[in-house]
Amino acid sequence: MSPGSPARSRGGGRLLTGVAWAVLLLGLWLWGRRIADGPGGGPGPKTGDVAAVGRSFGVPLPPAAHPVKGAEPHRVEIPAVGVSAPVVPRGLDDDGAVDPPSFDEPGEVGWFGRGTRPGAKGAALLVGHVDTRDRPAVFYGLSAVRPGQKVGVEGVDGSRAEFTIDDVRVFPRDRFDPRKVYGPREKGRAELRLITCGGAYDRKAGTYTANVVVSAYLTRVAER
């Protein structure tokens, strides 16, 4: 996948396998609820650990809003890439990995319901498929977002939390670090992670070679 382009499927589209999701979400199993308040691993990996698709250097960003209690998310919107999708809570499956959204509903986004609520202190996690066997899925264009763009999350209570994107990275699976991906980047902030698959499709392994990880932080809250 070239920087700045959507994470595309190869050869007419691929199925994101259970193995891929197990790798992508292994850190959730290991960290559990601790991801909300655990250390974030510093400002970023050393050179060579990740590919920086979009960084906030030179982009004016608004100040962070104070964290709130947060609400269970109902819908997520990313206007820059045309995403407006329902959010469904997901838990752990029988193997201890997070149960992903169903391929029968490729337009759904999964929220790790045992972790942080969007708007609350810590890092709330939203995951979605990049494609199915024959069509793009909800986060197909996720790697095209850039720092300064907005993400809106509607709560089941009618509230709306607005986040500002400050970083977009591609983490190779062989150097995937749960602390850097799932941990908060700045202590005390309310943050959001949007995660999908990216890189090339490895036909032999039956999975993609990387993960696209978009980081955002809370900048505005509209209560019901």
Rank of each mutant, 00 (worst) to 15 (best):
A36N: 02
A36Y: 00
P43L: 12
R133Y: 03
T196L: 14
P73L: 04
G119R: 00
V214F: 01
P60F: 04
F171L: 13
G82T: 03
L24T: 07
P147N: 08
T219E: 11
T164Y: 07
Y182W: 08
G38L: 09
G122C: 11
R133P: 02
P86I: 09
V145C: 05
V168C: 02
D157N: 01
V23H: 01
V214S: 03
G91Y: 14
C197V: 15
G38V: 14
W111N: 12
G41V: 02
V213T: 06
G115Q: 03
S102T: 03
G91P: 14
A222Q: 04
D94Y: 15
P63F: 15
F103S: 00
A190T: 08
I165G: 00
H129C: 06
G148A: 09
K150Y: 08
V212F: 11
S215N: 15
P101I: 06
G32D: 11
I35V: 15
G70N: 07
L142P: 02
A222L: 09
R8E: 15
P136T: 13
L192R: 01
G206K: 04
V221P: 03
P147E: 04
A65M: 02
K187R: 10
V153L: 07
L26Q: 13
T209S: 11
A210I: 13
K150L: 05
Y140R: 00
H74W: 10
V76W: 04
P89T: 00
D202M: 11
G70H: 06
D99N: 05
A52H: 12
A222K: 03
R160I: 10
V127F: 11
L15V: 01
A7F: 07
V221R: 01
S5H: 10
D131A: 06
P106D: 13
R55D: 14
P178L: 08
E191G: 01
V59Y: 12
D49P: 10
F176C: 06
G206D: 07
A71E: 13
G113D: 09
V68W: 13
R203D: 15
L28W: 14
P100I: 05
L192C: 03
E108Q: 09
L15R: 00
R90G: 00
A52Q: 04
T47G: 15
